[in-house]
Design a protein around this nucleic acid. Sequence first.
DNA 1: CTGAAAGCGCTAACAA
DNA 2: TTGTTAGCGCTTTCAG
Lengths: 341, 341
Amino acid sequence: MVSIKDVASTAGVSTATVSRVLTNGLHVRPDGLHVRPEVRERVMAAVEKLEYRPNLVARSLRAQQSSKIGLIVSDIRNPFFTSISRAVEDTTHEQGFSLFLCNTDEDPEKEAIYLKLMRDESVAGVIFSPTRQMAANFASAEINFPIVVVDRLITGADVDVVLLDNVDAAYRLTVHLLENGYRRIAALCGEMSTTGRERQAGYEKALRAYDLSPLTEHVKYVQPKIEAGYAAALKMIDSAHMPDAFFTTNSLLAAGVLQAMRARNLTIPDDIALVTFDETTWAELVQPPITLIAQPTYEIGKTATELLLQRIADPTRSTRQVILKGKLLVRGSSAAHSGKR
Amino acid sequence: MVSIKDVASTAGVSTATVSRVLTNGLHVRPDGLHVRPEVRERVMAAVEKLEYRPNLVARSLRAQQSSKIGLIVSDIRNPFFTSISRAVEDTTHEQGFSLFLCNTDEDPEKEAIYLKLMRDESVAGVIFSPTRQMAANFASAEINFPIVVVDRLITGADVDVVLLDNVDAAYRLTVHLLENGYRRIAALCGEMSTTGRERQAGYEKALRAYDLSPLTEHVKYVQPKIEAGYAAALKMIDSAHMPDAFFTTNSLLAAGVLQAMRARNLTIPDDIALVTFDETTWAELVQPPITLIAQPTYEIGKTATELLLQRIADPTRSTRQVILKGKLLVRGSSAAHSGKR
DNA sequence: CTGAAAGCGCTAACAA
DNA sequence: TTGTTAGCGCTTTCAG
């Protein structure tokens, strides 16, 4: 492995000079870096000749900070996080950072482990989607590196956040069902996340606006997984309180509900309507296509990364909460049908 | 940040001893590490008290190797790679490694950049899904770290590989269509990958076995993206040579084809059948559900990671090619219908 | 069994 | 403008 020493000796200069030439492009020095053009050329020639590439580990050790950023999400297989991760990866690499990926499965223990790992790796910063537990005790987590929270609400801590206006989105989605005549609306919410809670709150707010109150049998917190959505939906369908609509807080739960409805040979929306969050490949391909709140996922990921990079550049900067509105896409799965008007 | 020096001084020993205590658990030394139990205790107590955690960057620099592994895929949003990445992440973290994620978009330039970056980061190894170009010149890429190739065929280089028997899978999938009476089968194949080529070969082999030869108009290489699948399918549907079945080599293309068929109000499989590769959330949710070759994605990712870790442990080990068989899941989208028998 | 010291590759004071 | 040198935190000879 060719090191800075090799470059220095072939160029006939000291390692310091090589370093100066190389780092000049990086940090934009106020007054430029004082290396004679002639010397600079010699150094560059040596770099080319030897195919020298700086050792980033050494650089990190020296700088006490690396050009890596961490992304900690519950499960990359959730299409929402898949899309976020792609946006984050694009943006980080554009800016010369690399990306660590961590899946927590909404497990606070894993969260703690990964957070510590990120510190041990001296990452420059982290983009994090914490569980409710974590979010509630965020201040006491003693996170001593730049961090941006995505998708989840943080209370009692001063952090940069990028997330949807979940209450509003859920409210609009539920009102849409109510307007179309549905009254026995069941809610399947992701447990462990503030997002699930907030969307549940929006759902309840909408019901109250229509002088309805949700049956306890109709509100269920489940793991954000297809199987959990399937099981919960099946149970409700087979119960004495079969709903006339399902409101789910993420695409995995919606997929589970859809499976359950297929298993029971129910028709959407005639037997039961279905609405959810997050645009996916399949939401428009199934029949009828699914009504949902689309989140600007790529934008969320990109914004979060930008906020993070800005915070890294200036840790004293005041924090920002970026709240985005969801877009309601009305499709067939929530159509009002004759018997319901 | 508490360093090994702090631990050493509070424990009243040298940094060397602290290091010995700490690394003992890591590398299983042939004869154990000779630290008196009493001293070890003192060190551990200091570690606890100070909440010391070793600086991984420093450790990497010293060891000239890190505990990071890289995953370089074309696009994490392809459900196949999403699943692979989750398996890889699980397995790497289990073994105390962290994971770098890189998306190349099947762009050889990005591949080169990321490969170099991985070297600069001193990763312990890389799991890589290269383009055809890269695969063809793999030997000349001068990769000087452990690497395992997934999903793609490598010729002329001695590397560990984990991939599907693509020709066989495509052959069986096509034969299935032929058996069900389809004769004008169009193939949409992912360009840039050996996988697309191999699957195309399996498709042709099946046609030849039935004394058919594919029309040039019916074989198309496109970017592995929904939009590309949509555009290509639409063109074929609207052409003079409308196929009676679509064979696509990945789920994104299949989604595009499905969109195209919806756009033209065609019925599956009566107007045109559809078969593809890769199980997805939606393949069984659309109607009719899609016939496909399922790959054991999680297993592929896990196996690749295990091969990589073994190679890291023993670089002289002889290479392995793990070839897995796909599983044909026959569903409604390829059903024989009366007019076709 | 333990400590002293060198050095991984790099950058930033400080000198010259 | 350039070189010398120290040191980031760690592990590993080499002595003792």
